[in-house]
Design a protein around this nucleic acid. Structure first.
Lengths: 341, 341
DNA sequence: ACAGCTCATGTTATCGATACCATCAACAAA
DNA sequence: TTTGTTGATGGTATCGATAACATGAGCTGT
């Protein structure tokens, strides 16, 4: 007897104890719980009884080790603070929990190195799938994932070099489409405000979309029309300030993310500028607030909940062997035309 | 040889393989990785080399089972969609990941039964600690937690019957204080808008705080001044509508949560009502938007990030044995006086 | 020079469940 | 009656790491 330390107070109940109480073997208990249809009616009842008599809580850690099968999916986001991710998380969670799986969350701190660290940590936890919001990754991260062979879904953007599954929309097309809309409406000096570009494929793609549209329309690609600002409402006001100062002819601004546009609307009102009379405003991401401002803001709506739901489903399909090959879901974004442009 | 199915393609590397390559025992590898100071300089190097030659990823599942120690903390929120929780999650995550721990998240769907299910699931995953936003729980949930003996921190409110650790602020006092402020400012017909009360201790406490303040000031506890509405900006406008219709004398509204107040501000502007001239508005939770509206909104600021940080720290202290007893952190809320009241 | 220590490393049993195979009863087919 | 088949249950090795103890080399002090 190799008496390993056992915290005496709380008696850990294991499957053996249940087996004893039910007068069967551990194996049978395991089966009765996981494949009730495989055991006799009678046994099923006896086991169920024993389970709650002794207060048995199956040990998923042991089950995972034994079956080399995990029921945890890891999600890595740039930041947990950004409320835009909330819908996606809910979509993921709804699917996973509905299927008896669990969700682990980490943030990359908006950095590739941070993402790699999180991936490594999750692989050590033996997650059965990974959901990555980033589409840029370090080489080491890609190698790790490939070597382990874990299913991965990238959900932040469509990408030319997917690791595996992709469930997203085209940031490029979304930004391009919105810019074209502004041009079609007759705006000729369209400012563009982007969130930080560093390590952020989505921001870069949106900017490319803007530039592409501008070129298509034969408008000047004036670098003074572009501004990179940190997230937050305050940045909206700052953008109005800076862009209009340098570009007197400015007649529209496309805010490529977050709640920037709300700040801009408020700032315009403060200045007494008519929107869209004096300046038009467009946004990215349909935060519900945008429909309540005066005027309500024209924006790109992203199917965030669905991205979460579908990506989780794709991962589960892979985990369960129902699907085997990489797939790409190109979810449609939607332009919501409101009064601001 | 009991050939268990092994997916042949991806060779799982285990500690034994590292040991072989380094010419030492598995135990030594384990030590070299976890307690480098316990092995010779020389070995440390050889093991490190072997680790990345063979591409070893420690299996935390096996480690947990073997040591009966987990490095995963479970967090249960009423909903993942609510962006108010984002700061708290970030606080928790920062602490946990800084200590090599992980975060599992589930939502209770704003229901006690949902919470119990999530707790049970997390205990099966053998989390080393639980963070609960609710302070109301089913009896079964309380029994489960007690029997397992896992450290728990309740973070949504201070409570007279804590399970264990509490890290929060007093919803009652916060609401009471704000209501008193309004009364002191001379408002006599103070409306109160609450989020749904069902299964939600926080909402109930806030309402109690309001009622307590109203009573203290000798104002009438008029039930027509109280309105229960679902979350969302739209509810703000609806509240203005309904309350002012029934109560012509209404001179202030205290919105006890979420972004309700923003909707109200926007609605007032639409109606051309002066704030606070025609009606004063106060809010709960300092969403940054509230400081950008016109007028900016007087509100209660909750130290959400700190709640996350401190609760995670408290759990880790308990897990590591540094702390043993239940504690309560009563974090101060803060009244932010702005122009709306 | 030898008991007594310390420090580095190895051996073995174990955590709790599951995969795989063995077994055995009941029953159908020949 | 015998063989084959099906269905229910049990036995044993195993997943991959770690705790606890064992070992053995090098060192100290008297």
């Amino acid at each position: 007897m190799n008496g390993r330390q056992v915290s005496s107070s709380r008696a850990r109940v294991c499957i053996q104890d249940v087996a004893r109480h039910a007068g069967v073997s551990a194996m049978t208990v395991s089966r009765a719980l996981r494949q009730p249809e495989k055991v006799s009616e009678n046994l099923r009842r006896r086991v169920a009884e024993a389970v709650d008599r002794v207060g048995y809580l199956p040990n998923r850690i042991a089950a995972s080790l034994s079956s080399s099968r995990s029921n945890v999916v890891g999600l890595i986001l740039p930041s947990l603070r950004n409320s835009l991710f909330a819908d996606t998380i809910q979509g993921i969670s709804d699917v996973l929990h509905g299927a008896g799986h669990h969700l682990m969350i980490a943030d990359s701190g908006y950095g590739l190195a941070g993402e790699e660290a999180a991936i490594r940590a999750f692989l050590q936890q033996r997650v059965c799938g990974l959901l990555l919001h980033n589409t840029w990754h370090t080489d080491a991260a890609r190698r790790l994932i490939e070597r382990v062979g874990v299913p991965v879904a990238e959900i932040g953007d469509l990408t030319p070099e997917p690791i595996d599954i992709t469930v997203s929309y085209s940031n490029f097309e979304a930004a391009r489409t919105m810019t074209l809309l502004l041009a079609r409406r007759g705006y000729r000096h369209i400012g563009f405000v982007t969130l930080p570009l560093k390590d952020n494929a989505r921001s870069v793609e949106r900017q490319r979309g803007y530039l592409s549209a501008v070129a298509e329309c034969g408008l000047a690609a004036d670098p003074t029309l572009i501004l990179e600002l940190p997230s937050g409402i305050g940045s909206g006001a700052k953008a109005i300030d800076r862009l209009s100062e340098v570009n007197p002819g400015l007649d529209a601004i496309f805010f490529a993310g977050d709640v920037l546009a709300v700040g801009a609307i408020l700032e315009c009102r403060r200045r007494g500028w008519a929107v869209p009379g004096r300046i038009a405003i467009a946004s990215f991401d349909d935060v519900d607030l945008l429909s309540f401002t005066d005027p309500p803001v024209t924006t790109v709506r992203i199917p965030r909940y669905d991205i979460g739901r579908l990506s989780a489903e794709a991962i589960l399909d892979r985990v369960s062997g129902r699907a085997l090959k990489p797939v790409t879901f190109d979810l449609a974004f939607q332009i919501i035309e409101r009064g601001s442009a």
